[in-house]
């Protein structure tokens, strides 16, 4: 059983890492979520795979018989919930990003950190990527354009 889980983890992590390294934004996010599932399996198996019985003392007895370790189950449940929230957020983020940037290639996404053209002189930031200055007369039109 433990070998089956180990091989599953291995395949999941492999697939996840391969997708996460993709240049395609959506694949990258899906890869990260698959990677997270692999990691959740690691967490799950940290309690050892033993009995499938729940950790409940049977009526009439005073000692807990052979049973599964409940702690990693609680941990992995928490991790799954958190991971699910992050996947939801990242999918919305990626959709919005693809729509606004009109590209899903990560190599094109250099808005926050433009590719340097000169080895000594970094480029000045594009005005559309700067906060709107209260004294800037062209600011209101620019921010209007961005919203449309």
């Amino acid at each position: 059983m433990i070998w089956a889980i180990a091989i599953t983890i291995w395949i999941t992590v492999l697939v996840g890492a391969r997708l996460a390294l993709s240049r395609d934004l959506l694949r990258c996010v899906l890869g990260l979520s698959i990677l997270a599932s692999g990691v959740n399996l690691v967490l799950f198996s940290s309690g050892r795979v033993s009995s499938p019985l729940p950790a409940v003392v049977i009526a009439g007895e005073s000692v807990l018989g052979p049973s599964a370790n409940p702690v990693p189950q609680a941990l992995v449940l928490t991790a799954i919930v958190i991971g699910f929230a992050l996947v939801c957020f990242s999918l919305v983020l990626v959709l919005r990003l693809i729509r606004e940037a009109e590209s899903d290639d990560t190599l094109d996404l250099r808005f926050a950190e433009p590719k340097p053209r000169h080895s000594l002189e970094p480029m000045a930031t594009d005005a559309a990527m700067e906060p709107v200055h209260p004294n800037d007369p062209g600011a209101s039109t620019r921010s209007g354009e961005r919203r449309s």
Binding site: L25, L32, L109, A112
Partner: peptide, 12 residues
């Protein structure tokens, strides 16, 4: 746009 871009890098 740059903030969304930054969010993605930060997230990943």
């Amino acid at each position: 746009l740059d903030q969304l871009d930054a969010t993605f890098k930060y997230f990943a």
